[in-house]
Protein backbone atom coordinates (compact mmCIF):
# COMPACT_ATOMS: atom_id res chain seq x y z
CA UNK A 1 0.00 0.00 0.00
CA UNK A 2 1.22 3.41 -0.79
CA UNK A 3 0.49 6.13 1.74
CA UNK A 4 0.71 9.53 0.22
CA UNK A 5 1.51 12.37 2.60
CA UNK A 6 0.86 15.92 1.66
CA UNK A 7 3.84 18.17 1.60
CA UNK A 8 3.72 21.35 3.69
CA UNK A 9 5.64 23.23 1.07
CA UNK A 10 3.95 24.19 -2.17
CA UNK A 11 5.97 23.09 -5.14
CA UNK A 12 5.91 26.69 -6.31
CA UNK A 13 7.75 27.72 -3.17
CA UNK A 14 10.72 25.48 -3.78
CA UNK A 15 13.58 27.28 -5.40
CA UNK A 16 14.23 25.68 -8.78
CA UNK A 17 17.47 23.76 -8.62
CA UNK A 18 18.99 25.68 -11.47
CA UNK A 19 18.41 28.97 -9.68
CA UNK A 20 19.65 27.53 -6.42
CA UNK A 21 22.80 26.16 -8.03
CA UNK A 22 23.32 29.41 -9.80
CA UNK A 23 23.16 31.28 -6.53
CA UNK A 24 25.73 28.96 -4.99
CA UNK A 25 28.02 29.38 -7.95
CA UNK A 26 27.59 33.09 -7.78
CA UNK A 27 28.41 33.20 -4.08
CA UNK A 28 31.42 31.02 -4.63
CA UNK A 29 32.65 33.12 -7.46
CA UNK A 30 31.98 36.32 -5.57
CA UNK A 31 33.88 34.92 -2.62
CA UNK A 32 36.71 33.68 -4.69
CA UNK A 33 36.73 36.88 -6.64
CA UNK A 34 36.94 39.07 -3.60
CA UNK A 35 39.14 37.10 -1.30
CA UNK A 36 40.87 34.31 -3.12
CA UNK A 37 41.16 36.24 -6.33
CA UNK A 38 42.88 38.92 -4.38
CA UNK A 39 45.23 36.42 -2.85
CA UNK A 40 46.22 35.31 -6.32
CA UNK A 41 44.72 31.86 -6.10
CA UNK A 42 42.53 32.55 -9.08
CA UNK A 43 43.13 34.47 -12.21
CA UNK A 44 39.90 36.44 -12.26
CA UNK A 45 40.33 39.05 -9.56
CA UNK A 46 38.62 41.60 -11.74
CA UNK A 47 35.31 39.84 -11.10
CA UNK A 48 34.98 41.61 -7.80
CA UNK A 49 34.98 45.03 -9.35
CA UNK A 50 33.43 44.14 -12.69
CA UNK A 51 30.09 45.66 -11.80
CA UNK A 52 28.30 42.33 -12.14
CA UNK A 53 27.53 42.26 -8.45
CA UNK A 54 23.95 43.00 -7.43
CA UNK A 55 23.41 46.17 -5.42
CA UNK A 56 22.33 44.17 -2.40
CA UNK A 57 25.64 42.35 -2.15
CA UNK A 58 27.57 43.54 0.87
CA UNK A 59 30.80 41.84 1.82
CA UNK A 60 31.22 41.65 5.56
CA UNK A 61 27.48 41.81 6.01
CA UNK A 62 26.83 38.59 4.14
CA UNK A 63 29.97 36.55 4.82
CA UNK A 64 31.42 34.52 1.98
CA UNK A 65 33.18 31.18 2.08
CA UNK A 66 36.93 31.49 2.37
CA UNK A 67 38.42 29.46 -0.45
CA UNK A 68 41.44 27.78 1.02
CA UNK A 69 42.85 27.46 4.50
CA UNK A 70 44.62 24.76 6.45
CA UNK A 71 43.54 23.34 9.79
CA UNK A 72 45.76 23.71 12.83
CA UNK A 73 46.28 21.71 15.99
CA UNK A 74 44.79 24.30 18.33
CA UNK A 75 41.50 23.83 20.09
CA UNK A 76 41.25 20.06 19.76
CA UNK A 77 38.47 18.71 21.95
CA UNK A 78 36.88 22.13 22.54
CA UNK A 79 33.20 22.53 21.78
CA UNK A 80 32.79 25.44 19.37
CA UNK A 81 30.55 28.33 20.38
CA UNK A 82 27.61 28.51 17.92
CA UNK A 83 28.06 30.95 15.02
CA UNK A 84 24.91 32.85 16.02
CA UNK A 85 26.26 33.51 19.49
CA UNK A 86 29.66 34.66 18.20
CA UNK A 87 27.99 37.09 15.80
CA UNK A 88 25.24 38.52 18.06
CA UNK A 89 27.09 39.00 21.35
CA UNK A 90 29.85 41.50 20.68
CA UNK A 91 31.73 44.24 22.46
CA UNK A 92 32.36 46.71 19.65
CA UNK A 93 31.54 50.18 21.00
CA UNK A 94 32.03 51.84 17.60
CA UNK A 95 28.71 50.24 16.70
CA UNK A 96 27.03 50.72 20.10
CA UNK A 97 27.61 49.63 23.69
CA UNK A 98 24.89 46.96 23.83
CA UNK A 99 26.08 43.42 23.06
CA UNK A 100 23.44 43.06 20.35
CA UNK A 101 24.04 46.48 18.80
CA UNK A 102 27.15 45.78 16.68
CA UNK A 103 25.30 43.12 14.67
CA UNK A 104 22.45 45.56 14.04
CA UNK A 105 24.35 48.78 13.42
CA UNK A 106 27.13 47.31 11.29
CA UNK A 107 24.76 45.90 8.68
CA UNK A 108 25.51 48.60 6.12
CA UNK A 109 29.22 48.87 6.89
CA UNK A 110 31.45 48.09 3.90
CA UNK A 111 34.92 46.82 4.79
CA UNK A 112 36.12 47.25 1.20
CA UNK A 113 38.20 48.94 -0.09
CA UNK A 114 40.57 48.80 2.89
CA UNK A 115 44.12 49.90 3.41
CA UNK A 116 46.32 49.67 6.46
CA UNK A 117 49.11 52.17 7.04
CA UNK A 118 52.35 51.11 8.63
CA UNK A 119 54.25 53.80 10.50
CA UNK A 120 56.52 54.70 13.40
CA UNK A 121 59.79 52.86 13.97
CA UNK A 122 59.99 51.21 10.56
CA UNK A 123 62.45 51.28 7.74
CA UNK A 124 59.91 53.17 5.66
CA UNK A 125 56.30 54.19 6.26
CA UNK A 126 53.98 52.51 3.79
CA UNK A 127 50.42 51.39 3.18
CA UNK A 128 49.08 48.01 2.20
CA UNK A 129 45.68 46.97 0.89
CA UNK A 130 43.66 44.16 2.46
CA UNK A 131 44.09 42.22 -0.79
CA UNK A 132 47.88 42.40 -0.47
CA UNK A 133 47.74 41.56 3.22
CA UNK A 134 45.90 38.35 2.30
CA UNK A 135 48.78 37.46 -0.02
CA UNK A 136 51.38 37.73 2.77
CA UNK A 137 50.78 34.31 4.24
CA UNK A 138 48.61 31.24 3.73
CA UNK A 139 45.42 31.29 5.78
CA UNK A 140 44.88 28.76 8.53
CA UNK A 141 42.12 27.94 10.96
CA UNK A 142 42.88 28.58 14.62
CA UNK A 143 40.36 27.40 17.18
CA UNK A 144 41.01 29.60 20.20
CA UNK A 145 39.36 30.20 23.53
CA UNK A 146 38.39 33.85 23.97
CA UNK A 147 38.05 35.11 27.53
CA UNK A 148 36.39 38.49 28.04
CA UNK A 149 37.35 40.59 31.07
CA UNK A 150 33.62 40.66 31.90
CA UNK A 151 33.72 37.01 32.88
CA UNK A 152 32.40 35.17 29.84
CA UNK A 153 34.17 33.10 27.22
CA UNK A 154 33.76 31.52 23.81
CA UNK A 155 35.55 29.02 21.61
CA UNK A 156 35.98 30.56 18.18
CA UNK A 157 37.27 28.99 14.96
CA UNK A 158 39.13 31.96 13.54
CA UNK A 159 40.68 31.99 10.09
CA UNK A 160 43.79 34.10 9.78
CA UNK A 161 47.57 34.17 9.70
CA UNK A 162 50.33 34.91 12.22
CA UNK A 163 50.82 38.62 12.90
CA UNK A 164 54.57 37.90 12.68
CA UNK A 165 54.17 37.57 8.89
CA UNK A 166 52.76 41.07 8.61
CA UNK A 167 55.44 42.48 10.94
CA UNK A 168 58.15 40.87 8.82
CA UNK A 169 56.75 42.64 5.78
CA UNK A 170 56.46 45.95 7.73
CA UNK A 171 60.22 45.90 8.49
CA UNK A 172 60.37 47.53 11.93
CA UNK A 173 63.75 49.03 12.87
CA UNK A 174 65.88 48.33 15.96
CA UNK A 175 64.02 50.95 18.05
CA UNK A 176 60.68 49.16 17.72
CA UNK A 177 59.86 47.70 21.14
CA UNK A 178 56.05 47.83 20.92
CA UNK A 179 53.34 47.60 18.28
CA UNK A 180 50.28 49.81 18.40
CA UNK A 181 47.03 48.88 16.62
CA UNK A 182 44.59 51.62 15.71
CA UNK A 183 41.02 50.84 14.69
CA UNK A 184 38.81 52.74 12.29
CA UNK A 185 36.81 55.55 13.94
CA UNK A 186 34.51 56.78 11.21
CA UNK A 187 31.59 58.69 12.73
CA UNK A 188 29.70 58.51 9.42
CA UNK A 189 29.74 54.72 9.28
CA UNK A 190 30.05 53.90 12.98
CA UNK A 191 27.28 55.48 15.07
CA UNK A 192 28.96 54.69 18.40
CA UNK A 193 31.91 56.92 17.56
CA UNK A 194 29.64 59.95 18.01
CA UNK A 195 29.39 59.18 21.72
CA UNK A 196 32.31 60.27 23.92
CA UNK A 197 32.23 56.95 25.76
CA UNK A 198 35.79 56.01 24.80
CA UNK A 199 38.68 58.08 23.53
CA UNK A 200 38.45 57.31 19.82
CA UNK A 201 40.06 55.85 17.82
CA UNK A 202 40.27 52.54 19.66
CA UNK A 203 43.92 51.82 20.33
CA UNK A 204 45.57 48.62 21.50
CA UNK A 205 49.15 47.48 21.80
CA UNK A 206 51.49 44.56 22.28
CA UNK A 207 55.11 44.18 23.30
CA UNK A 208 57.23 43.10 20.32
CA UNK A 209 57.76 39.54 21.60
CA UNK A 210 54.04 39.18 22.24
CA UNK A 211 53.28 40.40 18.73
CA UNK A 212 55.80 37.95 17.24
CA UNK A 213 54.50 34.99 19.27
CA UNK A 214 53.14 32.30 16.93
CA UNK A 215 49.80 32.31 18.79
CA UNK A 216 49.10 35.94 17.88
CA UNK A 217 47.12 36.17 14.65
CA UNK A 218 45.43 38.61 12.38
CA UNK A 219 41.98 37.12 11.82
CA UNK A 220 40.14 37.66 8.54
CA UNK A 221 37.42 35.08 9.03
CA UNK A 222 35.56 32.73 11.30
CA UNK A 223 33.77 29.43 10.76
CA UNK A 224 35.46 29.23 7.36
CA UNK A 225 33.81 32.43 6.16
CA UNK A 226 35.00 36.01 5.84
CA UNK A 227 34.85 38.00 9.06
CA UNK A 228 31.37 39.48 9.74
CA UNK A 229 31.35 43.25 10.32
CA UNK A 230 30.39 42.95 13.96
CA UNK A 231 33.44 40.77 14.62
CA UNK A 232 35.88 43.32 13.19
CA UNK A 233 35.87 43.02 9.39
CA UNK A 234 37.98 43.06 7.39
CA UNK A 235 40.82 42.27 9.80
CA UNK A 236 41.32 42.15 13.56
CA UNK A 237 43.84 41.14 16.13
CA UNK A 238 43.43 37.91 18.13
CA UNK A 239 45.64 37.33 21.18
CA UNK A 240 44.13 34.27 22.88
CA UNK A 241 45.98 34.45 26.22
CA UNK A 242 44.83 38.01 26.86
CA UNK A 243 41.38 39.43 27.67
CA UNK A 244 39.25 39.98 24.60
CA UNK A 245 39.52 43.77 24.55
CA UNK A 246 43.14 43.44 23.41
CA UNK A 247 41.85 42.22 20.06
CA UNK A 248 41.52 45.49 18.14
CA UNK A 249 38.94 45.31 15.35
CA UNK A 250 38.85 46.91 11.89
CA UNK A 251 42.53 47.85 12.06
CA UNK A 252 43.58 50.76 9.84
CA UNK A 253 46.95 51.64 11.30
CA UNK A 254 49.86 49.71 12.75
CA UNK A 255 52.50 51.81 14.46
CA UNK A 256 55.81 50.59 15.86
CA UNK A 257 56.98 52.48 18.94
CA UNK A 258 59.87 52.60 21.36
CA UNK A 259 57.66 53.45 24.35
CA UNK A 260 54.74 51.43 25.66
CA UNK A 261 51.56 52.73 23.98
CA UNK A 262 48.71 53.97 26.18
CA UNK A 263 45.70 51.94 25.11
CA UNK A 264 42.08 53.10 25.03
CA UNK A 265 41.01 51.03 28.01
CA UNK A 266 44.07 52.09 30.03
CA UNK A 267 42.88 55.67 29.58
CA UNK A 268 39.27 54.77 30.36
CA UNK A 269 40.05 52.95 33.60
CA UNK A 270 43.73 52.88 34.63
CA UNK A 271 43.00 50.91 37.80
CA UNK A 272 40.90 48.34 35.94
CA UNK A 273 42.65 47.72 32.64
CA UNK A 274 46.39 47.35 32.26
CA UNK A 275 48.60 47.16 29.20
CA UNK A 276 49.26 43.43 29.52
CA UNK A 277 45.70 42.29 30.35
CA UNK A 278 46.81 38.67 30.47
CA UNK A 279 44.05 36.27 31.48
CA UNK A 280 44.93 35.56 35.11
CA UNK A 281 42.57 33.95 37.63
CA UNK A 282 44.81 35.15 40.48
CA UNK A 283 44.59 38.86 39.70
CA UNK A 284 41.28 40.32 40.86
CA UNK A 285 39.30 42.89 38.93
CA UNK A 286 37.25 45.52 40.83
CA UNK A 287 34.09 44.52 38.94
CA UNK A 288 34.15 40.93 37.79
CA UNK A 289 35.24 37.58 39.17
CA UNK A 290 38.31 36.46 37.24
CA UNK A 291 38.77 33.01 38.76
CA UNK A 292 35.83 31.54 36.86
CA UNK A 293 33.88 32.26 33.70
CA UNK A 294 30.60 31.62 31.91
CA UNK A 295 30.94 29.73 28.65
CA UNK A 296 28.64 31.30 26.07
CA UNK A 297 26.32 28.77 24.46
CA UNK A 298 26.39 26.40 27.43
CA UNK A 299 22.85 27.37 28.45
CA UNK A 300 20.95 28.73 31.41
CA UNK A 301 21.87 26.00 33.88
CA UNK A 302 25.48 25.25 32.96
CA UNK A 303 27.13 27.21 35.78
CA UNK A 304 30.70 28.50 35.57
CA UNK A 305 33.98 26.92 34.59
CA UNK A 306 37.41 27.62 36.09
CA UNK A 307 39.46 30.26 34.31
CA UNK A 308 42.94 29.03 33.40
CA UNK A 309 46.21 30.94 33.74
CA UNK A 310 46.97 32.68 30.43
CA UNK A 311 43.61 31.25 29.31
CA UNK A 312 45.26 27.82 29.11
CA UNK A 313 48.14 28.91 26.86
CA UNK A 314 50.90 28.99 29.54
CA UNK A 315 53.01 26.47 27.66
CA UNK A 316 53.24 28.74 24.62
CA UNK A 317 53.45 32.16 26.29
CA UNK A 318 54.42 31.75 29.96
CA UNK A 319 58.16 32.24 29.39
CA UNK A 320 57.62 35.77 28.07
CA UNK A 321 56.57 36.91 31.54
CA UNK A 322 59.19 35.08 33.60
CA UNK A 323 60.30 37.24 36.51
CA UNK A 324 57.54 39.82 36.01
CA UNK A 325 55.17 40.75 38.82
CA UNK A 326 51.87 40.05 37.09
CA UNK A 327 49.91 41.74 39.86
CA UNK A 328 51.61 45.03 39.09
CA UNK A 329 51.76 44.42 35.35
CA UNK A 330 48.10 43.45 35.05
Amino acid sequence: MIIQTKSDILSSEITPKAVFDDRRTFLQQAGIGLIAGATGLLTSPSFATSGNLPASYKPGNSPIKLPRFSKSKYGAGEKLTPYDDITTYNNYYEFGTGKDEPAIHSKLFKPVPWTVSIEGEVKKSKTISIEDILKLAPLEERIYRMRCVEGWSMVIPWVGFPLAQLIKWAEPNANAKYVEFISLADSQRMPGVNLPILDWPYTEGLRMDEAMNPLTIIAVGLYGESLPNQNGAPMRLVVPWKYGFKGAKAIVKIRFTEKMPITTWMKAGPSEYGFYANVNPQVEHPRWTQSSEKRIGAGLFAGRIKTQMFNGYTEQVGQMYAGMDLRKNF
Binding site: D84, T88, Y89, W152, K294, I296, G297, G299, L300
Partner: peptide, 15 residues
Protein backbone atom coordinates in the same frame (compact mmCIF):
# COMPACT_ATOMS: atom_id res chain seq x y z
CA UNK B 1 11.70 34.12 25.82
CA UNK B 2 13.10 31.18 27.77
CA UNK B 3 10.77 28.67 26.15
CA UNK B 4 11.61 30.09 22.75
CA UNK B 5 15.35 29.92 23.45
CA UNK B 6 15.52 33.64 22.89
CA UNK B 7 17.36 34.86 26.00
CA UNK B 8 20.40 36.06 23.97
CA UNK B 9 23.80 34.38 23.80
CA UNK B 10 24.24 34.90 27.54
CA UNK B 11 20.90 33.88 29.06
CA UNK B 12 22.06 34.04 32.68
CA UNK B 13 23.20 37.63 32.27
CA UNK B 14 19.95 38.43 30.47
CA UNK B 15 17.75 37.12 33.29
Amino acid sequence: LGFNDDLSANPVEFV
